[in-house]
Design a protein around this nucleic acid. Structure first.
Lengths: 212, 212
DNA sequence: AACATATGTTGACACCGCCAACTTTGGGGA
DNA sequence: TCCCCAAAGTTGGCGGTGTCAACATATGTT
């Protein structure tokens, strides 16, 4: 504990970061971003207007949170990919799992990243963080094609399909719409099996790679 | 014009419907549901508290709008399917187009349907309207398999994949994330080509059905 | 005709986002 | 070293919001 006595100094010292972390915490707790800036300020132990010294308005705070989210997601994908060694075919499912897990682990954050009300979307989406997510998928597909594991089709077509599928599954999962009685217990595996048949080449026996 | 003089009567007569239509209109205009209940009331020409005689709170209004959206979407899908005649293979792409078009035509409504803040999701999603959307897709796949046009796989797996893909594309389109330089000019076609290879059987020459 | 009920209105409360004006603090020239 | 100024806090207030309670007026049933 290098934290000294928490005596209240006039200047907080690192309020910007504290606000972000507090907001992230509240979002996790309450599963939404309906929190008020005043509440964040209260929790951070500052006055109701202090946040305005760091963010011009609430949307700016949300935008910052969304960008952090994209960064975390990109890192999670890269990690999953590297865990799979160099094999694109083996990497795809773990990456898919990592993607969906990221979303379901923190639904509010994920939904915030994609089209929250009042957030300046162009800011968030044109960031390198956001573009990096799609690029990560494209990379794997590209390598898979080079190695002959995947069908030779326009990579961007496959990437679009993969990303859309992942985004869709994640969103529908978050919303609780993938009911077990309708889509089974493992919707990701189910969808993955189907799209994998559209991407991968069969092995010498014409069998598709195993999902598990 | 059967509308008589719009003289102001104490009782509006059909306020509930008017509120819904007004809200729908504002949503279209402003591309979000940040509107205030008071504004809806103003536009409807009633006092600021009148809406509370028809909806317990704002979330209830939004929930009603979302349900209407699901109903419209289901109808659009059924229409697209029937336009294609009885051929499941020919129906899939038009249905996909209808789905995405519905979303991009009224982005705020579509996003509202799936997980708006403060809307009671279980209410919306357990409605027959919402479930009907998935069922429409499942039907076509089922028939396609029976006729030998589609691969014999678990229908619910294919349905999950299709719905997720459609939902994903729609959402990403709405958010403006499917940049032409990344995914081409027709992301839906791109993704559709890929997933179609995972669903359809090739024809006698092993070729996939044409996308256009 | 009388009355219960549904539907509208008015006024109020607590709270929010945001702004302006003021205070404290810390750090970089003179 | 001191002074001063910009950065980072504080307080108080404005207009607006969702929601509620109390009241007013239509409507339709008996």
């Amino acid at each position: 504990m290098t934290e000294a006595a928490p005596e209240r100094r006039y200047h907080h010292g690192d309020l910007r970061r504290t606000l972000i972390e507090t907001a992230l915490g509240v979002m996790r707790e309450e599963q939404n971003w309906q929190f008020t800036l005043r509440e964040i300020a209260r929790r951070a132990g500052v006055s109701h207007a202090a946040p305005y010294k760091h963010f011009p308005d609430k949307a700016a705070l949300l935008t910052a949170l969304a960008m952090i989210g994209f960064d975390q997601l990109r890192i999670a994908l890269i990690k999953a990919r590297s865990n799979a060694g160099g094999d694109p075919r083996a990497a795809l499912l773990p990456m898919a799992r990592a993607y969906v897990d990221f979303g379901t682990d923190n639904p509010a954050l994920y939904r915030l990243m994609f089209g929250a009300e009042g957030v300046n979307r162009s800011d968030v989406h044109l960031s390198e963080n956001a573009i990096g997510v799609l690029d990560t998928v494209t990379d794997v597909l590209q390598r898979g094609q080079s190695e002959g594991a995947f069908r030779r089709r326009a990579v961007r077509d496959q990437a679009t399909a993969c990303w859309s599928l992942l985004h869709g599954i994640t969103m529908l999962s978050i919303d609780g719409l993938l009911l077990a009685e309708k889509v089974g217990l493992e919707p990701l595996d189910a969808a993955f099996r189907t799209i994998m048949e559209g991407i991968a080449n069969g092995d010498e026996n014409g069998r598709m790679p195993d999902v598990r």
